[in-house]
């Protein structure tokens, strides 16, 4: 054994040491999202659930609603849950699986690792969206053929882009929670509270309190972003302002706090 070691240890030519480029870190971080069984199936489940959702629409959608927008809306629900999970786990696993000990010593600049993770997460989100649109289109064509309805394409490119933006924002909320909490379970629970529980509470509050009814679009990030996913609607300037304000309070500020914590947090 030791003779092999002696022969092999010094064979790599001394390269001119350059700073590790961000592109390479991003490529590795992207690979790390796929290279475990759980990571692989999480990403595969985007394709699987999209297909299932499209199948559901074909089988059960009422006659007049077998349109492309119905497919796109149906596919949104599984994907909006899975995508943020991918983003959360890509960050939290460095702490909960303690791989950060290796990652942060091979690249001793956590900001660069987090940036690379953000880029790869957004790349996956966009790829997932392209896939979802494709599955939706396929479903639309198949549905029209099977059920004998007319083929309806009722989504414009701008609306598709809104939809993608909405998805990327959901994913970034997950990413933010991963950075802020750095524990898989904690971040996932927080994501569900933020995405499903809080909007319900805000909704109840808005329906009982007039003052909050007026305030809700400026406070409730889900409410503010709802317009991104409604296909027959063009966003007004005020609605963009709602998205921007809630985005700053629920996404940017906590993300900045999270980043400050990540820089000093110890990987045990």
């Amino acid at each position: 054994m030791s003779t092999i070691a002696a022969d092999h240890v010094r064979t790599v030519p001394v390269t001119t040491t350059k700073r590790i480029p961000l592109t390479r870190i991003t490529a590795v971080e992207l690979r790390k999202m796929f290279d475990t069984r759980s990571g692989f199936w999480l990403i595969a489940s985007i394709a699987i659930t999209s297909a299932l959702a499209a199948g559901g629409v074909i089988l059960w959608a009422p006659e007049g609603e077998l349109t492309y927008s119905t497919f796109a809306t149906a596919i949104r629900f599984p994907v909006v849950i899975i995508l943020p999970l991918i983003a959360i786990l890509s960050v939290t696993s460095e702490w909960s699986q303690r791989t950060g000990l290796t990652t942060f010593t091979l690249v001793p600049h956590r900001g660069r690792i987090i940036t690379a993770k953000a880029i790869s997460a957004v790349a996956i989100a966009i790829a997932a969206m392209v896939l979802a649109f494709a599955v939706g289109a396929l479903g639309n064509v198949l549905g029209a053929a099977i059920r004998g309805t007319t083929l309806v394409w009722d989504v414009t490119l701008t609306q598709c882009l809104y939809y993608v933006l909405g998805m990327v924002l959901s994913l970034l909320v997950g990413f933010m929670l991963g950075v802020l909490i750095r524990s898989s379970t904690g971040a996932i629970v927080a994501y569900f509270i933020l995405t499903f529980l809080l909007p319900t509470i805000f909704g109840l509050l808005a329906s009982s309190q007039q003052w909050f009814f007026d305030l809700q679009p400026w406070v409730d990030i889900q409410f503010a972003q709802a317009g991104l996913f409604v296909f027959e609607h063009t966003l007004t300037g005020t609605e963009w302002a709602h998205i921007a304000v809630t985005g700053v309070t629920w996404l940017v500020i906590p993300l900045l706090i999270g980043l400050a914590l990540v820089m000093r947090s110890e990987v045990k």
């Binding site: 475990t36 699986q97 303690r98 791989t99 990987v267």
Partner: peptide
């Protein structure tokens, strides 16, 4: 630093 600090998967 710690041989066990690896992703089990």
């Amino acid at each position: 630093l710690d041989a066990s600090a690896q992703h089990a998967g």
